[in-house]
Amino acid sequence: MSELQDLYQQMILDHYRSPRNCRQIDECSCSANGHNPLCGDRIAVYVDVVDGVIRDVSFEGSGCAISTASASLMTEAVKGKTVEQAHALFKVFHNLITGEARGDEDLGKLEIFAGVRQYPTRVKCATLAWHTLEAALKEDGSEVSTE
């Protein structure tokens, strides 16, 4: 069970039970929907960008502990960052959970998702919110699917 505790850490369970920034932003500059057909998870991400800076970001949806906690922690991590910084953060985060080599960037709280790399079938759960954020920032309006 030790590996499990690596995956289901208290912080992940806490963000699953009480997700942060789980609401709609009425007057946001962009938004997108994401869908993981494998497990039925659906998410909407709302972003308010002013002068290239993410002034507010939120999400709504239903999903597993990993995808909900990832969405919640993502909103905390990118709020106040520039769009470029958010893109860069996703790259580092993606490397973290897929076990790719990475530099010495500090991911802060996002480091708790390191355990996901032991569970390849769950990588999509952890990245759904991030892919949806990217789509929102691109403002192409299309729904993101993990499949």
Binding site: Y8, Y119, T121
Partner: peptide, 10 residues
Amino acid sequence: GVHPHDVGTI
């Protein structure tokens, strides 16, 4: 209170 995928993994 638990998503089926979390149940499956555990």
